[in-house]
């Protein structure tokens, strides 16, 4: 398995270079370094001299990807792309346009993102699986039918509606939790209740339908009939046998997103004033801070690759027939 992991990590290098190149191209098709400087310097009294100084200070005064003026390797290395990309592979994210170290920002903002994402993830899995198993247990009854209708309704509603509705109902009308905000340590609890509830409810519809389909596929199989014939209760059949055998498709969907939990939720973080990585990325896009955008895309790619690798590894744990080699 170790060789497999090493091989997968090596495979990921060209992918990351490709992602970097694409991010770079897409960003600089839309924004030139001059545009970035103007955006950063504001709207009033911006002179060409000030723009030049801004670019020089941040290394944006070089050619984008190919430096004609240089010779040899310098043609490639003395460019914005090389300068800004190579360090990423050592996880040196450099500085944001406002001078703040990006790595430090990521470390600081990762925790609020996780504080929301982990409870949503765990509670969500529990609720969704239980709800899906409940529907399967009552399959072909009115509970199943209305459960599916309920799921479709939940799926059809925009997350934004859940957020604004939740803030209005629980925060404003019932006054049970703060409408928005964030704090550290145990004080964070009261701020997390509402976004977590909304995050969980927002995910019930689609996940329940997905799990229900998986479980229904399993329920007709021979081992289930055998389990029932042994005299096991339906609850035990569902939770001990069907759930265990349905783990591969479930893990495919779940494990891959575990590393991405770090990246936070764009909408929830913005509306609840949670200083996580989701809102960090959105702010960077709005302020055309390429250094942050590039770092976040790179980090997202790395985490996604890590998620896929973890998924593969997790298969070996739930299904002894799977071998990585």
């Amino acid at each position: 398995m170790f060789a497999y992991i090493i091989r997968r990590i090596l495979y990921s290098l060209p992918i990351l270079i490709g992602v970097n190149l694409m991010t770079f191209s897409l960003f600089f098709i839309v924004n030139s370094p001059d545009d970035m400087a103007r955006m950063h310097l504001g709207q009033k009294r911006v002179t060409e001299g000030a723009i030049e100084k801004w670019k020089q200070a941040r290394g944006y005064d070089k050619p984008l990807i190919y430096n004609e003026a240089e010779s040899g390797v310098g043609k490639v290395t003395n460019t914005i792309f090389y300068d800004k990309s190579v360090r990423l592979f050592a996880f040196d994210f450099g500085y944001a346009d406002d001078g703040r170290p990006i790595g430090e920002d990521i470390l600081q903002r990762m925790w609020p993102s996780l504080a929301i994402a982990i409870p949503i993830f765990l509670v969500g899995i529990l609720v969704n699986i239980c709800f899906a198993l409940l529907l399967v247990f009552f399959r072909s009854t009115y509970i199943d039918v209305w459960g599916v209708v309920f799921s479709v309704v939940l799926m059809s509603i925009s997350t934004l509606f859940y957020i604004i509705g939740g803030q209005y109902l629980l925060g404003k009308l019932m006054q049970l939790v703060p409408i928005s905000g964030y704090d550290t340590g145990f004080s964070a609890f009261k701020f997390l209740v509402l976004p977590v509830i909304i995050g969980v409810i927002g995910g019930i519809g689609s996940s329940t339908r997905w799990y229900r389909t998986i479980f229904l596929e399993e329920i007709g199989k021979d081992y289930v009939r055998t389990a029932r014939a042994k005299g096991l209760s339906e609850i035990r059949v569902l939770f001990r046998h069907i759930l265990k055998n349905a783990m591969i498709p479930i893990l495919t969907g779940i494990v891959v997103i575990i590393p991405l939990l770090f990246m936070g939720s764009l909408l929830l973080e913005s509306f609840f004033g949670v200083p996580g990585l989701g809102s960090y990325t959105i702010d960077a896009i709005q302020s055309q801070d390429f250094a942050i955008v590039r770092s976040m895309v790179f980090l997202g790619s790395v985490l996604y690759i890590a998620g896929l690798l973890l998924t593969d590894i997790s298969y070996t744990m739930v299904d002894p027939r799977v071998r990585l080699g």
């Binding site: 803030q167 925060g171 404003k172 006054q175 409408i179 928005s180 509306f271 609840f272 004033g273 200083p275």
Partner: peptide, 14 residues
């Protein structure tokens, strides 16, 4: 830091 106007307004009213 309050990026959205709705929470800001509601918290002002509270």
């Amino acid at each position: 830091l309050e990026k959205e106007s709705i929470p800001y307004w509601n918290k002002f009213l509270q």
